[in-house]
Amino acid sequence: MNTAIEILLVEDNPNDLELTLLALKRHNFANNIHVARDGEEALDFLFCRGPHSHRTFDSPPKVVLLDLKLPKVDGLEVLRAIKNDPRTKAVPVVVMTSSRQQKDMIEGYQLGVNSYIQKPINFADFQEIIRQLGYYWLVINQPAPADAFK
Protein backbone atom coordinates (compact mmCIF):
# COMPACT_ATOMS: atom_id res chain seq x y z
CA MET A 1 0.00 0.00 0.00
CA ASN A 2 1.29 3.35 -0.92
CA THR A 3 1.35 5.19 2.37
CA ALA A 4 3.03 8.37 1.19
CA ILE A 5 1.43 11.21 3.13
CA GLU A 6 -0.46 13.57 0.83
CA ILE A 7 -1.92 16.00 3.36
CA LEU A 8 -0.46 17.28 6.59
CA LEU A 9 -3.36 18.71 8.60
CA VAL A 10 -2.26 20.94 11.44
CA GLU A 11 -5.25 21.56 13.72
CA ASP A 12 -5.53 21.69 17.50
CA ASN A 13 -9.28 22.12 17.89
CA PRO A 14 -10.98 18.71 18.02
CA ASN A 15 -14.22 20.05 16.53
CA ASP A 16 -12.43 21.64 13.61
CA LEU A 17 -10.32 18.56 13.21
CA GLU A 18 -13.41 16.37 13.08
CA LEU A 19 -15.23 18.65 10.64
CA THR A 20 -12.21 19.05 8.34
CA LEU A 21 -11.60 15.32 8.32
CA LEU A 22 -15.29 14.73 7.66
CA ALA A 23 -15.27 17.12 4.76
CA LEU A 24 -12.10 15.55 3.32
CA LYS A 25 -13.55 12.07 3.79
CA ARG A 26 -16.76 13.02 2.03
CA HIS A 27 -14.68 13.94 -0.99
CA ASN A 28 -12.36 10.98 -0.74
CA PHE A 29 -9.23 12.86 0.16
CA ALA A 30 -8.83 11.32 3.60
CA ASN A 31 -6.67 8.35 2.79
CA ASN A 32 -3.17 9.67 3.31
CA ILE A 33 -3.56 12.34 5.97
CA HIS A 34 -1.26 13.00 8.83
CA VAL A 35 -2.63 15.10 11.66
CA ALA A 36 -0.44 17.30 13.83
CA ARG A 37 -2.12 18.70 16.96
CA ASP A 38 0.29 21.58 17.48
CA GLY A 39 3.07 23.48 15.74
CA GLU A 40 5.83 21.40 17.26
CA GLU A 41 4.35 18.15 16.00
CA ALA A 42 3.98 19.71 12.56
CA LEU A 43 7.63 20.80 12.50
CA ASP A 44 8.82 17.37 13.77
CA PHE A 45 6.96 15.78 10.90
CA LEU A 46 8.12 18.18 8.21
CA PHE A 47 11.74 18.29 9.40
CA CYS A 48 11.93 14.49 9.86
CA ARG A 49 12.89 14.52 13.49
CA GLY A 50 11.77 12.92 16.77
CA PRO A 51 9.15 10.29 16.05
CA HIS A 52 9.47 11.09 12.32
CA SER A 53 13.24 10.70 12.01
CA HIS A 54 12.73 7.82 9.62
CA ARG A 55 11.17 10.18 7.08
CA THR A 56 13.14 11.91 4.36
CA PHE A 57 12.87 15.42 3.03
CA ASP A 58 12.38 14.33 -0.55
CA SER A 59 8.90 12.96 0.06
CA PRO A 60 6.98 15.83 1.66
CA PRO A 61 3.16 16.05 1.76
CA LYS A 62 1.49 17.46 -1.33
CA VAL A 63 -0.06 20.18 0.79
CA VAL A 64 0.00 21.38 4.36
CA LEU A 65 -3.34 22.65 5.74
CA LEU A 66 -2.24 24.94 8.54
CA ASP A 67 -4.33 26.52 11.28
CA LEU A 68 -2.85 29.71 12.71
CA LYS A 69 -3.88 29.56 16.33
CA LEU A 70 -1.87 26.64 17.68
CA PRO A 71 -0.43 25.65 21.03
CA LYS A 72 3.37 25.66 21.59
CA VAL A 73 4.48 26.95 18.19
CA ASP A 74 1.83 29.01 16.39
CA GLY A 75 0.91 28.68 12.72
CA LEU A 76 2.88 31.68 11.43
CA GLU A 77 6.03 30.37 13.18
CA VAL A 78 5.50 26.99 11.51
CA LEU A 79 5.07 28.75 8.17
CA ARG A 80 8.23 30.79 8.75
CA ALA A 81 10.23 27.64 9.58
CA ILE A 82 8.95 25.89 6.43
CA LYS A 83 9.58 28.79 4.09
CA ASN A 84 12.97 29.68 5.57
CA ASP A 85 14.49 26.24 5.07
CA PRO A 86 15.54 25.23 1.53
CA ARG A 87 14.59 21.63 2.27
CA THR A 88 10.94 22.51 3.00
CA LYS A 89 10.54 25.75 1.14
CA ALA A 90 8.84 24.16 -1.83
CA VAL A 91 6.14 22.47 0.27
CA PRO A 92 2.78 24.11 -0.54
CA VAL A 93 1.18 25.56 2.59
CA VAL A 94 -2.49 26.59 2.77
CA VAL A 95 -3.44 28.59 5.82
CA MET A 96 -6.95 27.81 7.02
CA THR A 97 -8.14 29.97 9.84
CA SER A 98 -11.25 31.38 11.48
CA SER A 99 -9.55 34.74 11.67
CA ARG A 100 -9.82 37.48 9.08
CA GLN A 101 -7.05 39.52 10.63
CA GLN A 102 -5.33 41.57 7.95
CA LYS A 103 -2.16 41.50 9.99
CA ASP A 104 -2.06 37.71 9.78
CA MET A 105 -2.86 37.75 6.07
CA ILE A 106 -0.11 40.25 5.35
CA GLU A 107 2.46 38.35 7.39
CA GLY A 108 1.35 35.04 5.92
CA TYR A 109 1.74 36.25 2.36
CA GLN A 110 5.05 37.91 3.15
CA LEU A 111 6.32 34.62 4.54
CA GLY A 112 5.34 32.96 1.27
CA VAL A 113 2.08 31.16 2.00
CA ASN A 114 0.63 29.48 -1.08
CA SER A 115 -3.01 30.10 -0.22
CA TYR A 116 -4.96 31.75 2.55
CA ILE A 117 -8.48 30.63 3.37
CA GLN A 118 -10.91 31.88 5.94
CA LYS A 119 -13.14 29.11 7.14
CA PRO A 120 -16.73 30.19 6.43
CA ILE A 121 -19.38 29.77 9.09
CA ASN A 122 -21.71 27.93 6.78
CA PHE A 123 -20.63 24.26 6.82
CA ALA A 124 -21.88 23.69 3.29
CA ASP A 125 -19.60 26.48 2.08
CA PHE A 126 -16.75 24.96 4.08
CA GLN A 127 -17.25 21.56 2.51
CA GLU A 128 -17.18 23.11 -0.94
CA ILE A 129 -13.91 24.83 -0.13
CA ILE A 130 -12.38 21.59 1.12
CA ARG A 131 -13.51 19.83 -2.04
CA GLN A 132 -11.93 22.50 -4.25
CA LEU A 133 -8.76 22.55 -2.19
CA GLY A 134 -8.30 18.78 -2.27
CA TYR A 135 -9.06 18.67 -5.95
CA TYR A 136 -6.65 21.44 -6.76
CA TRP A 137 -3.64 20.45 -4.65
CA LEU A 138 -3.94 16.69 -4.92
CA VAL A 139 -5.21 16.29 -8.46
CA ILE A 140 -4.60 19.37 -10.61
CA ASN A 141 -1.41 20.75 -9.17
CA GLN A 142 1.89 19.26 -10.30
CA PRO A 143 3.93 18.64 -7.14
CA ALA A 144 7.51 19.91 -7.03
CA PRO A 145 10.20 17.42 -8.15
CA ALA A 146 12.29 15.77 -5.43
CA ASP A 147 15.24 18.01 -6.29
CA ALA A 148 13.26 20.99 -5.05
CA PHE A 149 13.66 19.78 -1.48
CA LYS A 150 17.38 20.12 -0.85
Binding site: N13, N15, L19, L22, S98, R100, K103, F123
Partner: peptide, 24 residues
Protein backbone atom coordinates in the same frame (compact mmCIF):
# COMPACT_ATOMS: atom_id res chain seq x y z
CA UNK B 1 -6.44 44.48 18.56
CA UNK B 2 -5.90 41.38 20.66
CA UNK B 3 -9.57 41.55 21.58
CA UNK B 4 -10.77 41.84 18.00
CA UNK B 5 -8.40 39.06 17.08
CA UNK B 6 -9.93 36.79 19.64
CA UNK B 7 -13.42 37.93 18.61
CA UNK B 8 -12.53 37.22 15.04
CA UNK B 9 -11.08 33.85 15.77
CA UNK B 10 -12.57 32.54 18.95
CA UNK B 11 -16.10 33.77 18.37
CA UNK B 12 -16.32 32.54 14.83
CA UNK B 13 -14.90 29.10 15.55
CA UNK B 14 -17.79 27.96 17.83
CA UNK B 15 -20.29 29.44 15.39
CA UNK B 16 -18.80 27.39 12.63
CA UNK B 17 -18.99 24.34 14.83
CA UNK B 18 -22.64 24.98 15.73
CA UNK B 19 -23.53 25.43 12.10
CA UNK B 20 -21.53 22.45 10.95
CA UNK B 21 -22.79 20.00 13.54
CA UNK B 22 -26.34 21.24 13.12
CA UNK B 23 -26.06 20.63 9.41
CA UNK B 24 -24.61 17.17 9.94
Amino acid sequence: EAFTYSVSHDLRAPLRHIDAFAQI
